[in-house]
Design a protein around this nucleic acid. Structure first.
Lengths: 174, 174
DNA sequence: TAGGTTTGTTTCAAACTTGAACCAAGACCG
DNA sequence: CGGTCTTGGTTCAAGTTTGAAACAAACCTA
């Protein structure tokens, strides 16, 4: 196939997007590193655990939610565990499984860090967007994320997406 | 200040965005790593150099364009240089400066990799968006990026943005 | 139930990123 | 000039991420 290059509009959008998200991620990482001593991904782990009824989740589920690899999660959780913010528990129904549980200290750290994090996200992103744009942002990335979801389904991808990864259920509310 | 938390709409948008860009970056990195043996950031270095009249740029300029730190760039360029895709030249007017120049081989590798890269970006992003959404994407991230730009200006940031980095001119077309 | 496959997770080495520290070369100033 | 501040880049150690390989427990299946 003779490559459909990006149109000028798409190029501009792509450049703006890349520049924007790099700056944004950078700002978020810097803020969290400064104020909470951890990068964005680690904060997300704590946040995700905190939103769960029992404040615990199986590794694979957590990785799935966070859209990160299991190996990356293993490393991150080990570090958080060393810091006492997360505790690893074994899964009773499945001896293979291990569960990451947010400790009280972890919850405290999270609550401490949250305001600053939100302020950063606001200042860098939401305070610059109109309500319509907020909706557009959700719509756009929702569509993008969907594209990576469940494989086989009916409305297949515009092309084959040979990249794409995992998927797996199994909840771990002890 | 009593933290203005994200509204439900903002939360949804934020989640969609984070999930989306993680998946997207992951797909792009994977594709480039597979097909060109380098991550997205490295590809961007080559691409950026190729778009310059003389196919060369001073390190700081390049870092500025790419929105990455100088130290990160130094490392990346060293690797690319080792692979023969980029060559370092000294700056004649400023003995401190060093210039990164795209080699013919680098150009060739870039041209080889481009189609696959574009295809990935298309399949994962643009083929899922309407033309209006493409415009919205540009608008949104253009605004975000602007927020990190030139400091002092009139319409200052909604809050102080204590994070933010460098800035510096100086072109290096030999 | 033995044997083979899949699934959940960790491990390991190699590559990458970060931030602070460092160095040398311009710029300035008295 | 000689000192001092700034700028352009690199270096270094510490922390992260990656992908492939290793394991072990769960699941078939004959």
């Amino acid at each position: 196939m003779t490559t459909r290059w990006l149109t000028p509009e798409e190029q501009r959008a792509w450049r703006a997007y890349v520049a924007g998200y790099l700056l944004l991620e950078d700002a978020i990482d810097r803020q969290l590193q400064q104020d909470a001593g951890m990068p964005h991904a680690y904060y997300s782990i704590l946040a995700n655990l905190s939103e769960t009824p029992e404040r615990r989740l199986r590794m694979t589920d957590l990785a799935e939610r966070l859209k990160i690899t299991r190996s990356r999660l293993t490393y991150a959780v080990s570090r958080l565990e060393k810091d006492g913010l997360v505790r690893r528990e074994e899964c009773r129904w499945d001896k293979r499984g291990s569960i990451a549980a947010l400790t009280d200290e972890g919850m405290a750290v999270l609550e401490d860090a949250a305001p600053g994090h939100v302020a950063t996200v606001r200042a860098a992103l939401f305070d610059r967007l109109t309500p319509e744009q907020v909706g557009q942002l959700e719509e756009i990335f929702g569509q993008v994320a969907q594209g990576f979801q469940g494989d086989g389904e009916g409305e297949a991808a515009p092309e084959d997406l040979p990249w794409r990864r995992r998927s797996s259920p199994c909840s771990g509310t002890s």
